[in-house]
Amino acid sequence: MKPLFQKRVGIGVKASGLIFACVILVSVDASTLWLKSFKTLAGTALEPVLMISQWPNQAADSFSVFFTTRKTFRDEIERLNLQILTMRTSTQKMAALLQENNRLRQLLGSSERIQEAVLITEVIGVDPNPNHARITVDKGTSDNVAIGQAVIDDRGLVGKVVASTLGTSTILLITDQTQAVPVRSLRSGLQLIVEGGGGFADLVGRHVPGTADLRVGDTLVTSGLGQVFPNGYPVAVVSQFEQSQGNPFATIQAKPLAHLSARSHVLILFSTAVMPENYSNGAAINGQ
């Protein structure tokens, strides 16, 4: 028979042992990459759980599709066909222009523009911690996705890949606190770095003098400096530029162009540029 008031010995010892083990794990994981392969392996094994967590949203989606009328779909198809037509027209001369651009760059003695290929992925998860701006997508190392690759959507830069398992990748959004993107103003060519303000909302520009040639409404595009994000992708539009007396730097806020809170598709960029090994490592550490 089980005694009614069992004396539990060693809870304290066992608890402190386990907490100590956790502290070791956390500090090793925060400062080295030793646990990376374990995390990839375990993450791959746990992919089904991530899929299950998608069911409520998928059910809601199919529910709304079920109650959409035939006419709405017809209209949608027609609208999209028209859109394709306009897009095709505007890209007709693209190939010729690209060639001309590269020829001119050769004349100037600078290297050719790198052609980028894209991989279309679907967003399957969002980091539950509201302090992190990270999403998970449904393509991983089996599709050659590697840490450090840039991610865009149809409007602009989304972020970069910071971790991947066999079938999923984690993307650190440009609005995450630990993310910074080197950009230049399309109008004036001013170079600056924008950092994530946290959440999905805003980017913040730091250390830009109040006299700099920047205005509200300027489009910021990636400058390609730092070699993490390729040159020329739209990032954000300046929404606030103020200088206060006695403060050497201006207060700059910018709204991201990419639709970061949408749960749809994002594109992972594959470029032929070879990045030094330490860049991808740095990206992994920043992503924690």
Binding site: L18, I19, V23, I24, L25, A30, G43, T170
Partner: peptide
């Protein structure tokens, strides 16, 4: 592992709560 946080962070919290 599944939420991508530092390995051991949730584990430590839950061990504390359980103890």
């Amino acid at each position: 592992v599944i939420s991508g946080s530092l390995l051991g962070l949730h584990a430590m919290g839950l061990v504390m709560v359980a103890s």
